[in-house]
C-alpha cells in the first residue's frame, strides 16, 4: 500500500468514526500544524491551539471529500484557527508559567520573532523547515503545495531572513 493509499484509508476510516485512524492522522500531521500555527501565534499558545485544530478537524472530517486533500484541509483549519485566535486574544490570567529551566533559549524566541515578521507565504515554509525539521518534499506532500512553490518560498524566505538577521 502506498503512502497515499494509506492516508486515504485513514481518512475514510476516520470519517466512519474510527478514532484510532484519526489518532494516526494526528501523529502524521501534528508537526505540520504546529509549524503553521507558529507562523501566526505566539509559541506559548501554539500547542494548545494545535489541539483545538485537531478537535475541529475530528468533528468535521466527514465533510472532507478528497482524502488526498487532508494536509491542505488541516492547514486551512490551522490558519483559520490562528485568525480566530488573534480576534479573541486569550487573557494571560488563564496561563500559568512553569519553571524557567524548561524554556527554550531567549535567542530562539528572538529569532522566532523575526521569522514571524516575514511575509506569511515564506514564514510558514521556513518554520516547517527550520523549527519542525521537515524537508521541502515533506512540506509539499503534507501541505498539498507543489514542490516548486515550496522550494521558491524556502529560498526567498531564507534570503529575507538572512537580511533581517544581518
Amino acid at each position: 500500500m502506498t503512502a497515499e493509499q494509506e492516508q486515504a484509508a485513514l481518512v475514510r476510516a476516520s470519517q466512519q468514526g474510527d478514532r484510532a485512524a484519526f489518532g494516526a492522522i494526528y501523529q502524521q500531521f501534528s508537526r505540520m500544524i504546529h509549524g503553521i500555527l507558529l507562523a501566526h501565534v505566539p509559541y506559548a499558545d501554539a500547542e494548545d491551539l494545535m489541539q483545538d485544530v485537531f478537535v475541529r478537524a475530528m468533528r468535521q472530517v466527514d465533510r472532507l471529500r478528497e482524502p488526498a486533500a487532508m494536509g491542505g484541509w488541516l492547514a486551512s483549519i490551522a490558519r483559520n484557527a490562528a485568525v480566530d485566535y488573534r480576534r479573541r486574544l486569550r487573557p494571560l490570567a488563564e496561563l500559568t508559567e512553569i519553571g524557567a529551566a524548561n524554556l527554550p533559549s531567549r535567542h530562539a524566541f528572538e529569532v522566532m520573532d523575526i521569522l514571524q515578521s516575514l511575509p506569511e507565504t515564506y514564514r510558514e515554509a521556513l518554520i516547517l523547515r527550520l523549527v519542525e525539521g521537515m524537508t521541502g518534499p515533506e512540506i509539499a506532500v503534507k501541505t498539498g503545495m507543489t514542490h516548486q512553490s515550496v522550494r521558491v518560498n524556502l529560498c526567498r524566505g531564507m534570503k529575507l531572513l538572512r537580511e533581517k538577521l544581518g
Binding site: 507558529l38 512553569i98 524548561n102 533559549s105
Partner: peptide, 15 residues
C-alpha cells in the same frame, strides 16, 4: 537553535 521550539509528543509545554 529553532529546533528547541519543535513540537514533540509528550513534552512539557512552556506554559
Amino acid at each position: 537553535l529553532l529546533g528547541q521550539l519543535q513540537f514533540r509528543q509528550g513534552r512539557q509545554p512552556v506554559r
